[in-house]
Structures are given as structure tokens and as C-alpha cells.
């Protein structure tokens, strides 16, 4: 997504409840230091391939958090784009660390 729009927001908000609250395990995670325009305020942030209920997803993590292979995470709703003050606010699913493997 290079630009936000109310219509895109409206299509995407129907997907929130599918993942919200679900737990998963990190397969691989990187920390992104050089971010695209819309995500610049959040850098550095984690980006990971995560397994949730047997399926793989690629999801953003919480700004400043570090995720590693095997970490247990939970899906939460957060702002997902740094929009301008007159634009619709973008929310989406991010993963938040619950615990690391012992």
C-alpha cells in the first residue's frame, strides 16, 4: 500500500477479527531499520513469518520490540501507517511478544 484511502480501510477492517486475539509462534523474524514512508515513525520494528493455528502469515511487530525464532506472540490491533492529520487512521493486526521459549 503506497497510499491510504477510506475504501481500502473499509475493505481491510473486515479482516481484523479473524486474527485478533489469536496466538502464534515465530518462524523467522527480522528487525527493519530502513522503513517505507508510511511506517517510518515505527522503525525499528520487527517483521516476521509466524505460524498461527497451522497456517503461515507475514506480520508486523510492535515498534522497538525484538522477536526471535520460537517466541510466542499474540495478535493485537495497532495503528499500521503514519498517515497525515487529515487522513483516515489506519489500523491493522500486529504481533506482540508473550513469551520466549525456555
Amino acid at each position: 500500500m503506497t497510499n491510504t484511502s477510506p475504501m481500502k480501510y473499509w475493505r481491510e477492517n473486515k479482516n481484523w477479527s479473524f486474527l485478533l486475539g489469536k496466538k502464534g509462534t515465530i518462524i523467522f523474524s527480522t528487525t527493519i531499520h530502513t522503513a517505507p514512508e508510511l511506517l517510518q515513525t515505527y522503525a525499528p520494528y520487527p517483521f516476521a513469518i509466524v505460524e498461527i493455528e497451522g497456517k503461515k502469515y507475514e506480520l508486523l511487530g510492535i515498534p522497538g520490540e525484538t522477536l526471535s525464532k520460537g517466541d510466542c506472540v499474540e495478535c493485537v490491533l495497532r495503528k499500521t501507517a503514519n498517515v497525515q492529520s487529515h487522513e483516515v487512521i489506519y489500523y491493522g493486526i500486529k504481533i506482540k511478544k508473550i513469551s520466549s521459549p525456555t
Binding site: A35, E37, Q40, F47, E58
Partner: peptide, 22 residues
């Protein structure tokens, strides 16, 4: 800018299912 290019290159991936992944 670097940030603009980074944003543009995201178009080579799945912009919905890989959102946030540069």
C-alpha cells in the same frame, strides 16, 4: 528519498499479505 523508494519497492511483494515487510 530513500523512504519513498523503500515504499515503492514494496510493490514487488504482496502489498496486503506482506504489509510492513520491506
Amino acid at each position: 528519498s530513500v523512504q519513498r523508494i523503500t515504499q515503492a519497492l514494496v510493490g514487488a511483494s504482496d502489498i496486503e499479505r506482506e504489509y510492513g515487510g520491506t
